[in-house]
């Protein structure tokens, strides 16, 4: 287990004068699911956006397969093999489902594999095939999330970063999404997952980090953190224990 696919070392991120991330270091082993949990505003989304090159770290280093990412632009980071499914999905809602998937496979290196990738996406999400000519904006929330993940997979990523994939979905879809994350993981996709649904996220994560006001507060195996009384008290509470 000493094959670090992603390594974030001592990263600081500033939004104007406000520091959102303080000296954060995490690493993601190849083939695992790593969860990044914490309450709203803890900096989880900011960290993903920094890794994918949408914003810049002011300090520290981000390595992917040993190569530095922190000087690259977003479009170059995808080309390295890191796909980011952003918060709120950010589909092209006036484009059809198929057009969204086509753009997912835009990279020159993924274009020759387009038909295979498309078949794979349709296998994972048969509903997308049925709705391929429909506008993405007309899909239900759960279907949109499937499309967002399907679109990211079209680039053939080694690391898939998911930001709040279960947000706003019905309980059935939440279960589907978490099952899907497991399935993808067994197909050799390494996953970095940001979730508000801490209970579910910790259940499937091999490794997890708890972020608190921009700093790493705790780290450990998913199950360990799930059993930790402090985590239970601070983040999970009565609402989740019932399930």
């Amino acid at each position: 287990m000493e094959n670090r696919l992603l390594e974030v070392k001592g990263v600081d991120v500033l939004y104007g004068d406000i520091q959102a991330i303080w000296n954060v270091s995490i690493h993601v082993e190849e083939g695992t699911i790593v969860a990044l949990v914490g309450s709203n505003g803890a900096g989880k989304t900011t960290l993903l956006r920094t890794i994918s090159g949408i914003i810049r770290a002011s300090k520290g280093e981000i390595l992917f397969s040993g190569k530095p990412l922190n000087k690259l632009k977003a479009q170059e980071v995808v080309d390295m093999g890191v796909s980011h499914v952003p918060e709120g999905r950010r589909l092209f809602s006036n484009l059809t489902v198929l057009e969204n998937l086509r753009l997912g496979g835009y990279l020159p290196r993924s274009r020759p594999l387009f038909n295979d990738s498309l078949e794979r996406a349709y296998d994972l999400f048969p509903v997308l095939k049925n709705r391929k000519d429909q506008k993405a904006g007309s899909l239900s929330g759960g279907e949109q999330q499937m499309l967002a993940i399907g679109r990211a997979l079209m680039a053939q990523p080694n690391l898939l970063m998911l930001d709040e994939p279960s947000l706003g979905l019905s309980p059935i879809f939440v279960r589907t999404i978490f099952e899907l994350i497991n399935t993808l993981n067994t197909q050799n996709v390494t996953i970095l997952l940001v979730e508000q649904n801490i209970n579910q996220a910790l259940k499937i994560a091999h490794q997890a980090y708890v972020l608190k006001t921009g700093k790493i507060a705790m780290t450990g195996k998913g199950e360990e953190l799930l059993a930790d009384p402090e985590v239970q008290k601070a983040y999970i509470g009565e609402r989740w224990r019932k399930h």
Binding site: Q75, V78, H84, P86, L95, L103, Y106, A155
Partner: peptide
């Protein structure tokens, strides 16, 4: 065309097109 589709996509969400590997 794929690049034409990218132009339409960028008029909706530039950041999202960059995440697809499309140079803004």
């Amino acid at each position: 065309t794929l690049i034409g589709t990218a132009v339409r996509a960028a008029s909706e969400d530039v950041v999202s097109t960059a995440l697809m590997g499309i140079n803004p």
